[in-house]
Design a protein around this nucleic acid. Sequence first.
DNA 1: GCTTGACCTTATAGTAACTAGAAGGTTCAT
DNA 2: ATGAACCTTCTAGTTACTATAAGGTCAAGC
Lengths: 139, 139
Amino acid sequence: MNIGTVARQSGVPSKTIRYYESVGLIDPADRSSAGYRVYGRHDVETLRFVQRARSLGFSVDEVGNLLALWRDRSRSSGEVKTLARHRVADIDRKMAELAEMRDTLLHLMEHCHGDERPDCPILQGLAGRTATEPTVLES
Amino acid sequence: MNIGTVARQSGVPSKTIRYYESVGLIDPADRSSAGYRVYGRHDVETLRFVQRARSLGFSVDEVGNLLALWRDRSRSSGEVKTLARHRVADIDRKMAELAEMRDTLLHLMEHCHGDERPDCPILQGLAGRTATEPTVLES
DNA sequence: GCTTGACCTTATAGTAACTAGAAGGTTCAT
DNA sequence: ATGAACCTTCTAGTTACTATAAGGTCAAGC
């Protein structure tokens, strides 16, 4: 299999596969006589694994760990669970942050008539109050 | 005021201020005879505005628009509200994505004993099953 | 007058995780 | 044998900074 084929079968673009190889996430592929990278069915699985882990927000580095754990079946499952727990904590942090942004924005928007009049409470909010304690603008 | 002073007063690091200038987000500062950047109180306000907008997740480019809108008081508030609405939509998208990651991860973790035993449902879930329906592996 | 330390300047490169493009070689079907 | 589709490497661009290097400036103290 050439790189394009694995790319199609795994869903990971060829450029990304080369990139993963270059940063050491996946092992360097064997080469054909012409220098083309050659892959087997197993590589498709690996790449799918990588893709799923990435889509769950694991960093490329973390995926590297996960991959090592996956390959070494004698390793404990505790390590993996810890990694997953960290990820969930990251997600929680990020979600809280986004929720706060959203609230602030909505709060600001509530008082904006959004028409042709030039004065805008959103801009005034950005100019004067902190994002974390959006002092009551109305009343 | 030198850059360090504005940095302290606005909360935006000097390096970041120079960066903002270099990418055209803020106007180039006047220079002292020695070539130092010189700022006034108004610049502190501008920088604070920028910082708040960035903390609400507006991109540097968007902050540029917001800044233009802020400076031009004759502009309608509708444009600003539209920008804010887009931001909220972005946030909603991102939150939904994170929520899905979180669910999948939690689902996978539920079946992981997390001890010394080597088999790990999380890895198996990443490897084979779609994240959303991780077939029961233990039992 | 001179040194010390804090401050300032520019330019370059590094971060994460790719993505795009250039310039060129290979394979295969017609 | 020619053209399309594929492959190769290398370089640079993306976002929003942050870090480092190498050097100039300023105010205070001795």
